[in-house]
C-alpha cells in the first residue's frame, strides 16, 4: 500500500491505496464520487474525464498515485451549491444527453475546450475537440449545441484560434 494525498474538488483527501488503483477507482470507491463514470475502461470513450491540475485527462488511464499533490476536479465539483455550472445548464437546456452515461465526461471535456479555446469555439473546433468522448445516444448534434451555448455563458474571453 502507498499513501496518496491530493485535493479533490477543493477538499484535501488522502488514503492508503495499492499502486495499481486507478484514479477513477479512487474517486468512485474511496471517495464515493460516482459521477465520474467508467465506460470502456480502455481510454477510448471519455466517460471518466476529470481535470488534473487544470488539464482534462482520462481517469481510467492514470494511477491514483500519479496524482500525489495534484488538484483534481470532477463533475461533482463544477456546480456552485444548487446553481448548475453554465455548461451543465447548457446541456440541460439544449437536451445534450439522453441516457446520460457519457455526460459527466462530455461536460468536463466541454469545460476544458472552452478554457483552452476561449468562450466561443466554433462548431468545427467543438466536434474536433470532442474526439475523445463517445456518445451512443444523441448523434452529438445537441451536445455540440450545448457546448457552444455553455461556452458563450462561461464568460471566458475569446481567444485567437489556438490550432
Amino acid at each position: 500500500m502507498t499513501t496518496v494525498a491530493m485535493t479533490v474538488n477543493g477538499d484535501s483527501v488522502s488514503a492508503d491505496v495499492e499502486p495499481r488503483t486507478l484514479l477513477v477507482q479512487f474517486l468512485r470507491e474511496n471517495l464515493l464520487l460516482t459521477g465520474t463514470h467508467v465506460g470502456c475502461d480502455t481510454s477510448q470513450c471519455g466517460a471518466c474525464v476529470v481535470h488534473v491540475n487544470g488539464k482534462a485527462v482520462k481517469a481510467c488511464t492514470m494511477l491514483a498515485v500519479q496524482c500525489e499533490g495534484a488538484e483534481v476536479t470532477t463533475i461533482e465539483g463544477l456546480a456552485d451549491g444548487d446553481a448548475l455550472h453554465p455548461m451543465q445548464a447548457a446541456f440541460q437546456e439544449h437536451h445534450g444527453l439522453q441516457c446520460g452515461f457519457c455526460t459527466p465526461g462530455m461536460i468536463m471535456s466541454a469545460v476544458d475546450i472552452v478554457n483552452r479555446h476561449g468562450g466561443a469555439p466554433d462548431e468545427a473546433t467543438i466536434r474536433k475537440q470532442l474526439d475523445g468522448n463517445i456518445c451512443r445516444c444523441t448523434g452529438y448534434h445537441n451536445i455540440v449545441k450545448a457546448v457552444a451555448a455553455g461556452g458563450a455563458a462561461m464568460d471566458v474571453p475569446a481567444r485567437e484560434a489556438a490550432e
Binding site: 481510454s43 471519455g46 474525464v49 488539464k55 482534462a56 485527462v57 482520462k58 488511464t61 492514470m62 471535456s109 476544458d112 475546450i113 475537440q129 474526439d131 475523445g132
Partner: peptide
C-alpha cells in the same frame, strides 16, 4: 496524436 486527453498525458 490520440485525443485531447491522451495528449495532456
Amino acid at each position: 496524436i490520440g485525443d485531447p486527453h491522451v495528449r495532456n498525458l
